[in-house]
Design a protein around this nucleic acid. Structure first.
Length: 871
RNA sequence: GCGGGCGUGGCGGAAUUGGUAGACGCGCCGGAUUUAGGUUCCGGUGGCGAGAGUCGUGGGGGUUCGAGUCCCUCCGCCCGCACCA
């Protein structure tokens, strides 16, 4: 009976030292055991770790430690997503260098992560801002360029006026830059693009094979890729109405079945035909200008009402030369989707309906819902986009829309205009190419040189890396590389004449698109990967991170893996076989009377008669308890992991993080919850010490109490296995509590000396308890294992072998229902047949009473489950 | 508007996937130990009822011997995408 408390502050560093000294978590590539690669999304070195990191890395560490105990060769590495804007902002604000700021943050955060007791292979640590990393990224850029995976083109791009850089479509959220929050403008710039859209179909198809990804993420990617099947249709233009002899207008539609409901054509404001018409029509030109002004901000586009301008051009209906349609320029048509032109069918498209209602162009329904009389079917304010039968559509009448689509496609494919088919089937994707050029300093330089004579010349691979110059300043806005002559001006590698380096750097999402592959062989100086080693480790078996990367990082990585395969750096397509997206850490918010936010560390919670109140620690001033929100600096509702680890220990923080809330949901951080977790560490320690003093024995047989103990232990073991495999950590925690409760009850029930059989059962149960706690609270597990007299470390102890025969009961107690309501229990032999169970059930007083003399109509016996008597 | 998810005690959540609703934790109530306790231990804790019971998983309906779980319908909340032709 020990009265000594478990001292996490002393024990935790001690055990970490032992693990490190024995190199327990260093992973060898030549280890013959089956591999398991578990990876958490690597952090941006922002300064200090936050509770979100603690949650993320605690989850990954449980998986890593569990799989290691199960005999896998586990790869569990850590690195730093170290390029990016905040380092430049810090450099501007503090007159430091981005590298100095970044590496200092890395040093701090590495220590913090180490204090969590994570079983990481630190020998594989990488930082993306290190030339030893980005050198290989530049090499792959050149390989991709050779393989035709990269394009340089002028395109309308998203320009962030605050960060003064280009953003990818994926980085524009609600029309604003994902970092700066500034309204994004559209600009024409020459940029480097990864041709991700060439892989759209493959990226879409392969989603079906990612069965260990959350359905939600797959759906989001599916929608983002945005495949649609349709028809390109070329409309002849009435020669009398065109500005400059244009003969035709090509549109894209997914609803060719509604062609007989067409009421107008519409062009994007920057469509060539619109420009040509505007050249001769000042009013139209003014309208287009107005659209463009609106168009600079994505958000304005979303809110703008439907506006159009009649160009006076008439388009000829493909099925009727005598039928012409007005051609409008409209503000809701996008130049970069389809062909930048549409035909409008108001009856069956809400947008088109709004448009004709504004311009008085009329509506003609061509699809009639089943059960509605065609002659009375009208569309006024709400477009009908459902199924039905074709009407008002000549040779299509009576068909379903699907049949009509096929019929129209068939006819238009064979019809010709100017010697080419009028219609052409076309699959369209919403996914655009990935623009990677950024006008920033703190990123991976794009390894090309611009020569007036030779054009774009790749930097010879032997000259890599193209290192960032150190001597830069951030006192003026813009890209310091642009104004660094000695770095920028270089001879052309091809003709040796004066030339200029590319001063754009790569989007930081490029850095994170292959780091998981680099971890497989981070020491390789010659190549980005050793393909055989990469293929042996990849795909990542379990990837864990936030849902915010559902599209950006995960889609880019999937593309990059394919590109690496094409260029011989790996042999697989999909980087992440299993993906888990964890929830956020949230906390109550607090405000003083004047409305300013107060941090949890500054207040005291008082509870009186079930009412919770808060007051300021310093002054006693009352504080309002507000809603539960994501931890954020602005609302000051953060809790510093250092403080928690300092006062309670890493194990308590890890334990609480994984208790209660399912890992995919948000977890509410509460002081009471942490204290509960801390209480359990002490309880576990006492329990283990109580058992450690019991005699060691090898009993010949186990009595009922000992057997019950063994059953409880093996049941907890089996359930924990199931739940760790499915990442249901909250249930794992519950199993631990249940076993601890059972152990405590068994010890408490002993009034005299503990018999040998029970002592042995308790020791076995304690070992199992330590084993199932170990992945979550690894330091405490070591201390307990040592107290129980074992010489080996918990971290290198194989997972206990569950005895499944123990959890199979000889006798089982079945609930007995009468007409669906539980009235009794019946205990029968496990393999009792239905007839004997029925007899036993009918003999029960409670059953006879519940039946109230009604005859038994039926008895349902569900083996091992339940009995229901129907009377 | 389109797509996805969710709704269970005072709170976080379990429920073997159609089979005893509320595991486990937090909180709360009572008792014991303690000079004291923000320690530890024991007991209790969905509502109503003295009790046998009875009601109960957002509301209503259905399928079934049996529904938190399946179907229909309504209500509420959350997330993602959004003029994509």
């Amino acid at each position: 009976m020990t009265s000594e408390r478990y001292n996490a502050r002393e024990a935790e560093p001690k055990w970490r030292g032992v693990w490190e000294q024995k190199g327990l978590f260093d992973t060898r590539n030549d280890d013959p055991r089956p591999k398991y690669y578990v990876l958490e999304m690597f952090p941006y070195p922002s300064g200090r770790i936050h509770m979100g990191h603690v949650r993320n890395y605690a989850m990954g560490d449980v998986v890593a430690r569990y799989k290691r105990a199960r005999g896998f060769n586990v790869l569990h590495p850590m690195g730093w997503d170290a390029f990016g804007m905040p380092a430049e902002n810090a450099a501007m604000a503090n007159k430091t260098h981005p590298a100095a700021w970044t590496y200092a943050n890395i040093a701090t955060m590495r220590d913090q992560l180490k204090s969590m007791g994570l079983s990481l292979d630190w020998k594989r640590e990488i930082a993306t801002c290190d030339p030893s990393y980005y050198k290989h990224q530049q090499r792959m850029f050149l390989d991709f360029l050779e393989a035709g995976l990269i394009d340089r083109k002028t395109a309308k791009v998203n320009w962030d006026p605050v960060d003064r850089t280009v953003l990818a479509n994926e980085q524009v959220i609600d029309g604003r830059g994902w970092r700066s929050g500034a309204l994004v403008e559209q600009r024409e710039l020459t940029q480097w693009f990864f041709k991700i859209s060439d892989h759209a179909q493959d990226l879409l198809d392969a989603l079906d094979g990612l069965d260990r990804w959350p359905e939600k993420v797959r759906t989001m990617q599916k929608n983002w890729i945005g495949r649609s099947e349709g028809l390109k249709v070329r409309f002849a233009l009435d020669p009398a109405t065109v500005p400059g002899g244009e003969g035709e207008l090509e549109i894209y539609t997914t609803r060719p079945d509604t062609l007989f409901g067409a009421k107008f054509m519409a062009l994007a404001p920057d469509h060539p035909l619109a420009r040509a018409a505007a050249a001769k029509n000042p009013a139209l030109a003014a309208f287009i200008d107005e659209c463009k002004r609106m168009g600079t901000a994505q958000e304005a586009i979303d809110r703008a009402e439907k506006k159009g301008f009649d160009t006076g051009i008439r388009a000829v209906h493909p099925f009727d030369p005598s039928w012409t349609l007005p051609v409008y320029v409209a503000n809701f048509i996008l130049m970069d989707y389809g062909t930048g032109a549409i035909f409008g069918c108001p009856a069956h498209d809400q947008r088109d309906l709004d448009f004709v209602n504004a311009y008085g162009l009329g509506v003609r329904p061509v699809v009639c819902p089943e059960g509605t009389e065609p002659s009375t079917f009208t569309v006024t304010d709400v477009a009908y986009d459902g199924e039905g039968r074709m009407i008002n559509s000549r040779f299509l009448d009576g068909m379903t829309p699907a049949e009509a689509r096929e019929e129209v496609a068939k006819r238009l494919e064979t019809e010709t205009l100017n010697g080419r088919p009028v219609g052409e089937r076309k699959v369209n994707f919403r996914l655009r190419d990935w623009g990677i050029s950024r006008q920033r300093y703190w990123g991976c330089p794009i390894p090309v040189i611009h020569c007036d004579a030779c054009g774009v010349v790749p930097v010879p691979k032997s000259d890599l890396p193209v290192k960032l110059p150190d001597d830069v300043t951030f006192d003026v806005p813009g890209n310091p590389l642009d104004r660094h002559p000695s770095w920028r001006n270089v001879p052309c590698p091809r003709c040796a004449k004066p030339a200029r380096r590319e001063t754009d750097t790569m989007d930081t999402f490029v850095d994170s698109s292959w780091y998981f592959a680099r971890f497989t062989d981070p020491w390789n100086e010659a190549d980005p990967t050793d393909p055989a080693t990469a293929d042996a480790w990849l795909p990542v078996d379990q990837y864990i991170g936030g849902i915010e990367h559902a599209i950006l990082h995960l889609l880019y990585s999937r593309f990059f893996m394919r590109a690496m395969r094409r260029t011989g750096h790996a042999g697989i397509d999909e980087p992440f076989a299993g993906l888990f997206t964890q929830g956020m850490v949230v906390h109550e918010t607090y405000r003083t009377a004047d409305g300013s936010w107060v941090s949890p560390a500054e207040i005291r919670i008082l509870s009186e008669g079930g009412e919770r109140r808060a007051q300021l620690l310093a002054t006693g001033e009352p504080v309002t308890i507000g809603s539960i929100e994501k931890m954020s600096k602005s609302k000051r509702n953060t809790v510093d992991p250092d403080d928690i680890i300092g006062s309670y220990g890493a194990d308590t923080a890890r334990w609480f993080m994984l208790s209660d809330s399912p890992p995919e949901r948000d977890v509410i951080w509460t002081e009471e919850g942490v204290q509960g977790a801390a209480r359990f560490t002490q309880r576990m320690w006492r329990l283990v010490n109580d058992i450690a003093v019991l005699p060691r024995a090898a009993p010949a047989a186990y009595g009922p109490a000992a057997l019950a103990m063994r059953k409880a232990a093996h049941r907890a073991l089996i359930r924990t296995e199931e739940d760790v495999e499915r990442l249901r950590f909250n249930r794992c925690v519950a199993h631990v509590y249940e076993l601890a409760n059972a152990l405590q009850a068994a010890i408490g029930a002993q009034e005299t000396a503990c018999p040998d059989d029970l002592a042995a059962a308790l020791r076995e149960a304690a070992d199992i308890l330590v084993a199932i706690v170990a992945p979550i609270m690894p330091h405490l597990a070591e201390e307990c294992r040592s107290a129980l007299g074992h010489a080996t470390l918990a971290a290198e102890t194989p997972w206990p072998v569950a005895d499944r025969s123990l959890v199979v009961e000889d006798e089982i107690t079945l609930p007995v229902q009468v007409n669906g309501k539980k009235r009794a229990d019946v205990t029968v032999a496990r393999d009792a047949d239905s007839a004997s169970i029925e007899a036993a059930v009918l003999a029960l007083d409670a059953v006879r009473k519940a039946l109230e003399d009604r005859p038994v109509r039926k008895i349902i016996v569900v083996p091992q489950r339940i009995v229901n008597v129907v009377g």
